[in-house]
Amino acid sequence: GQGSGCDIQLTEDAVRRYLTRKPMTTKDLLKKFQTKKTGLSSEQTVNVLAQILKKLNPERKMINEKMHFFLKE
């Protein structure tokens, strides 16, 4: 990021990039898009992320008994 005001945006592209890199749980994703970084409310974050995940339709796999999402390149 650049400078102290480095914003993170919750976008389809950003989510796709994370999930292409490695499998992540919903909680992992939420950590990447913390409300204090995106400026969104908790509710907005959940809604937007849900829409993006439905659209991307990532693969799912269980790792350590937790559901992880990932995308093949």
Binding site: T25, T26, V46
Partner: peptide
């Protein structure tokens, strides 16, 4: 806090459950 993250993760999973 981590409990807020837990709540958000639960809400997100609930949203996705309709879909999965």
């Amino acid at each position: 806090s981590s409990s807020e993250a837990d709540e958000m993760a639960a809400a997100l999973e609930a949203e996705l459950n309709d879909f999965i």
